[in-house]
Design a protein around this nucleic acid. Structure first.
Lengths: 297, 297
DNA sequence: GGTAAAATCGATCAAATCGTTCAATTCCTG
DNA sequence: CAGGAATTGAACGATTTGATCGATTTTACC
């Protein structure tokens, strides 16, 4: 079941080390622990996840971390094929638990959220999307797979905790674009990069996005384009839009399957990308620049 | 429910410790408690806040402490509506963590998934949906709220596990209907009722639904209508559709904001409902009938 | 006002965790 | 390979925690 906090013993058993070592690591500051009034250590799940990822520690008993789907996945003895193949297999056969396991365990093993999206999830979903061309049952399988994927990414999102003073990021899919998953992935990637991501989801007018950015004093805004093409007139809208955002200190990044073509010379305040890795890199760069500026002052 | 005073049980749940520990801390002077005439402990909200701050104890379920900025010293004890009010507040102000807390804690306290949907989530989302009429920022708030709600329901869904041999249920929103949340709620309610629910999400053609029902040998199929109205010709489609489903042992239930009007005399294999409670009742009835038949044989 | 259900009381007890010490193991370096 | 440093895991008594109990108080409802 879903734990809110772990005791040293639980986490020690989960990763297969002694309780003593875990306590020593906690006392040495390697693991951030809260304390009960009586002095007992309590470890939050996102903190445990952060630690095992950074240290590259294999998880022996995932169910102790509240992640039973990871353990059930281990029962599927190393099947042949890449992670994408396995994910595709689980998605098309409706095995949601195993699909969640693929995503979660890949992240726990150290795969970055962006890599996960680019190299595992996107290819699998692309293959799922091709199904309906050949298979009459493709549409239902695609719908089911999408739902499963949304579940999996939402679960992943809960395992990541941005720092307390994280800058805000706001975004969504443009008006007329009904796809939920891509924007959800962006929100997850940005959370992993240390932002507090506010996802406005599918079909979100730019006006609404602008207001959200204002209210949240967002450092970064994203638009995730999947279901519509960025028409030239829309591209001009975007340039105008990004100008308004820039005026209040918010940088805009636009992404999608294909790199949007913007009017020449308009790439001053507007960034485009087709992969989550690009998005993550840009977001990281923005943070680094802000940090440098703060240190200088 | 903004309480002026907390019971030991409430505060214990809020910070994720046992009631015993809290009472011991109170008796040891760590927490200043008032006593009722009968000797029960009462902890003031400021005292609770002071304690968790001093001890650095993470607050697991902040909604139980009532939020300071809600400020209004409403003495009203927990009514059915108060939870909706809090949820609405969290949804409109973008506090996703707290919103998830309302949903999860309500479920953990014993509220059924159907009740949660009908009495807490639906009213809150309806109020959110009214926002755009009066507030220019309404659209963005609505999008943000929807995303938060989807997260919360997905999290709830992960907390519920159907029995191993659960019958399958398949459904989604009809073609042209872009709303994700209602069908997700149906899937969650059915999971809580003991079904293995396969959600095909928004904008799902009936053909795909039929194929999914076939492949899964579904006992139950649902169509959740939100964004489109059930036109008469579509209604006739539905009767035809439900006939095909019935032929393979799948019962159909159609739901939405308004009760769909079906051609007279067609209600043999088709069920309609406007509340999740109706849906849950029908699903339960189906299960009970099956069980009785199995026992008889 | 009266009654039944729910919550809380105070107390007890087993299990978990505390901080510390120490021996065994691993790692590093000359 | 020898030997010192660092890491690990086990053990210890003292303390903390969480579950449980029958008795009492509070709350909800009529």
């Amino acid at each position: 079941m879903n734990r809110t906090a772990l005791s040293p013993k639980e986490m020690a058993e989960a990763i297969g080390v002694s309780e003593s070592s875990l306590k020593r690591w906690a006392d040495g500051g390697l693991i951030r622990v809260a304390r009960t009034a009586g002095g007992h250590r309590r470890i939050s799940l996102p903190e445990a996840v952060r630690f095992v990822r950074e240290q590259g520690i294999p998880i022996v008993r995932p169910e102790l971390l509240g992640l039973p789907e990871v353990s059930s996945l281990q029962l599927e003895l190393q099947r042949a094929g890449s992670e994408t193949d396995r994910l595709y297999d689980f998605l098309t056969t409706g095995r949601s638990k195993e699909a969640r396991g693929v995503v979660t365990s890949a992240y726990l093993r150290g795969t970055s959220a962006a890599q996960l999206a680019d190299d595992i999830i996107a290819p699998a979903m692309a293959r799922v999307g091709d199904l309906w061309r050949h298979d009459p049952a493709g549409i239902f399988v695609e719908h089911r797979a999408t739902d499963i994927m949304i579940q999996a990414v939402n679960q992943l999102r809960l395992l990541i905790e941005p720092p307390a003073n994280a800058p805000e990021a706001v975004g969504g899919a443009p008006a007329g674009d009904p796809y939920v998953l891509p924007s959800l992935l962006v929100a997850t990637v940005l959370t992993a990069e240390g932002y507090h991501a506010v996802n406005l989801g599918a079909n979100c007018p730019t006006d609404s996005l602008l207001q959200a950015a204002q209210q949240h004093k967002a450092r970064l805004a994203w638009i995730s384009i999947s279901g519509v093409t960025l028409e030239p007139f829309l591209a001009r809208d975007m340039v105008d839009f990004s100008g308004k955002l820039a005026a209040m200190g918010t940088r805009l990044i636009i992404g999608g399957r294909t790199r949007p073509v913007l009017p020449a010379g308009s790439d001053r305040h507007i960034q485009t990308g087709v992969t989550m890795a690009e998005l993550a890199a840009f977001a990281r760069g923005l943070l680094a620049a802000d940090d440098a500026r703060q240190q200088a002052s």
